[in-house]
């Protein structure tokens, strides 16, 4: 065997070895990244855990949270009860808000007003807000659809 063949063989082996190594990495990299669970957690369509603690919500206040692709509103009534509704106004889909001074749920777009049961009481909204169930689980507030 002469030297050129040997060096060529060495080059090919190098290329193959390095290439295979790189390929294994390029295959394993996405697989490992895939296996590591994403931060957002698995999707749940039935309920959502809110990023607030129960006692950090003031009495007579409301907060907007995200439930799937829609906003929800969490209300702590003047009596201290937690309630949750879909925050999409039934009139033209604006996001509603809590009005502390009037103790109601209000849509700023066309002055639609809902009571603390989500029922449309004045202004253009044709239907009540969809009601969610809000409950406290330890230090967490969980809002669930239905029931």
């Amino acid at each position: 065997m002469n030297t050129p063949t040997n060096s060529r063989r060495g080059f090919v082996n190098c290329l193959l070895g390095g290439g295979f190594g790189a390929m294994v990495v390029s295959v394993l990299y996405p697989v490992v990244r895939y296996i590591i669970p994403p931060k957002s957690g698995e999707p749940t369509i039935a309920n959502v855990t809110l990023p607030w603690k129960p006692n950090e919500i003031r009495v007579n206040s409301g907060r907007i949270f995200r439930f799937g692709n829609q906003p929800g509103i969490l209300v702590k009534t003047p009596a201290g009860e937690l309630r949750a509704f879909n925050a999409v106004c039934t009139h033209l889909n604006c996001t509603v808000q809590y009005r502390e001074e009037k103790q109601d749920i209000w849509c700023a777009c066309h002055n639609g007003v809902y009571d603390l049961n989500g029922k449309n009481v004045s202004g253009p909204p044709p239907r009540p807000l969809e009601t969610y169930k809000a409950f406290v689980k330890g230090e967490q507030i969980v809002v669930s659809k239905g029931a």
């Binding site: 290329l15 290439g19 390929m23 390029s26």
Partner: peptide, 12 residues
């Protein structure tokens, strides 16, 4: 990378 390996294989 894959092409590189293929080239290597073809040479081999």
């Amino acid at each position: 990378i894959i092409v590189l390996v293929i080239v290597g294989l073809v040479l081999k």
